[in-house]
């Protein structure tokens, strides 16, 4: 299936969960990511359950605590 991740077209076997997508996309520290799925911010608890379908848009928003 074709989805868009962080603005890039990605082809994957699917459907799959957000948690699985984080693994497939080799996100190193998934604890440090907030996920917007089709424009909606997910609770972390939803990562295991939310299915990603063909044509979906996913944005990984990274925590960035730095500033000093």
């Amino acid at each position: 299936m074709e989805i868009t991740v962080n603005g890039d077209a990605v082809t994957l076997d699917g459907p799959l969960t957000i948690a699985r997508l984080l693994v497939e996309q080799k996100v190193k520290m998934p604890d440090m990511v907030s996920v917007e799925h089709n424009g909606k911010i997910l609770d972390r608890a939803e990562f295991e359950t939310q299915q990603v379908q063909s044509g979906d848009t996913v944005e990984f928003l990274y925590f960035m605590g730095g500033g000093a």
């Binding site: 440090m32 907030s34 917007e36 911010i41 928003l61 000093a68």
Partner: peptide, 26 residues
């Protein structure tokens, strides 16, 4: 909080002291 509803666990997120930062970023 709309974007990051769940704060990371304490210590789970690298702060700059741990990860470093390119000076010009600031």
């Amino acid at each position: 909080r709309c974007l990051f509803p769940d704060p990371p666990e304490p210590g789970a997120v690298p702060s700059c002291s741990q990860a470093g930062v390119l000076g010009v970023l600031g």
